[in-house]
Nucleic acid binder design. Sequence first.
DNA 1: TCCAACTTTTGAATAATTCTAATTCAAGAA
DNA 2: TTCTTGAATTAGAATTATTCAAAAGTTGGA
Lengths: 141, 141
Amino acid sequence: MERIEKYRSKGLKLTPQRLAILEYLDGNTSHPTAEDIYRAVKKKHPTISFATVYNTLQALLEMGEVMELTIDPERKHFDPNTTPHHHIVCTRCGKIGDVFVDYSSALELPPEVTEEFTPISNHIDFYGVCKKCNKTKRRTK
Amino acid sequence: MERIEKYRSKGLKLTPQRLAILEYLDGNTSHPTAEDIYRAVKKKHPTISFATVYNTLQALLEMGEVMELTIDPERKHFDPNTTPHHHIVCTRCGKIGDVFVDYSSALELPPEVTEEFTPISNHIDFYGVCKKCNKTKRRTK
DNA sequence: TCCAACTTTTGAATAATTCTAATTCAAGAA
DNA sequence: TTCTTGAATTAGAATTATTCAAAAGTTGGA
């Protein structure tokens, strides 16, 4: 997600807006939504539009430079780390953490499934409570 | 998902519309969207509204009688089978299959994750290609 | 430096889902 | 069986996330 050469060579035109988005995403492990990105980039480029964020994300998706996460039923999250990994979500605050373990060898599918589907990959959503929320009193109701 | 007594005893008022939704969901393994349910129930209750489908789904969610699936980035799918299980999605047609295997014991989390999160549960999305799509020629672009 | 092709922008358009207010109804009480 | 009331249904408006369209502005190779 760093060297800008990589993007130009893949035919991506590098505008200031895109550079700002790339910079924001580089090494970012916060799993931002489109809105998170929009708000962050807006600080340096107050005129940037949502469409530009979505356009750029679309381009990066097609280049395989970001992944779309479907963990959150309300909105898409994006992950610039495209090496295969899993996620853990705090069920109280929604914080998303990374899990860099390859469980594939342990995930054998039963015959009734492999008869119907040829498996290709997998992704695990772990659910739990983060440290901060564990300290906080659970809201009563 | 069957005995209607269960619902009444939990304070759910049983209207004809709700009974039709319950009947449609009972034993349904197609992982329908709200629209799938709306269209199906509409056959018997032509005046049913989307709001009723969403209301009922909300009530069933709160009762723990259906699960919301986030596999599809475009829309929510619902599963009346609330016993813990996983899913496999056809990356070509979107068909969703069930995987009734408990992999929990194989899904140990590394310390850097358990330091930050107290894990509670997990759900695996498997991705693959279904039998039907495997037969079909892949569309060339 | 020039210019075609690609981007950005604004605002409108979609699509999924939620909300609102008025009307209707389920089901326990009488 | 009828009454009563809180809950459910409905139509349609409202919201929210995301996409699209057209005009204006830029990038980067020639």
